[in-house]
Amino acid sequence: MDQIEEIYSNIIMERSMQAYHKHELENETCSAHGYNPNCGDDITLHIKLCDDKIEDMSFTGSGCAISQSSTDIMAEVLKGKTVAEAKEIADIFVAMIDRKPITDQQKKLLKDAVAFQNISNMPARVKCAILAWKTLKNKLDEL
């Protein structure tokens, strides 16, 4: 049972059941759609950029607990960051999931998103965890 609790940790469970940032966003300046064809996770990120800053972010869509909580936590972590900072943090998140070495300093930037560090023990779910982050990164790269 340890493995279950390691992956479906309290924070992941809580945020999947009650996402704080799951809603439409008034005055959004751009949005991005992400989809996992084999699981069916389907999210849309709503982003409000002000100059170079992510002033607000929310999401809508459906998916499993892993993808929903990861998206919700991402919105929280990246709110208020500049586009460059957000891209950097998204890269750190993906590196953590890929089990690449990351520094304590980088880890700090991830805040609650460190909850997903053991997801690679369940390879089938890695895509769910990184969907939002990849979707956001692609969008920001386009800007």
Partner: peptide, 10 residues
């Protein structure tokens, strides 16, 4: 369902 399958797998 994906959460169900993962937790069953474990």
């Amino acid at each position: 369902p994906h959460d169900v399958a993962s937790i069953l797998d474990m």
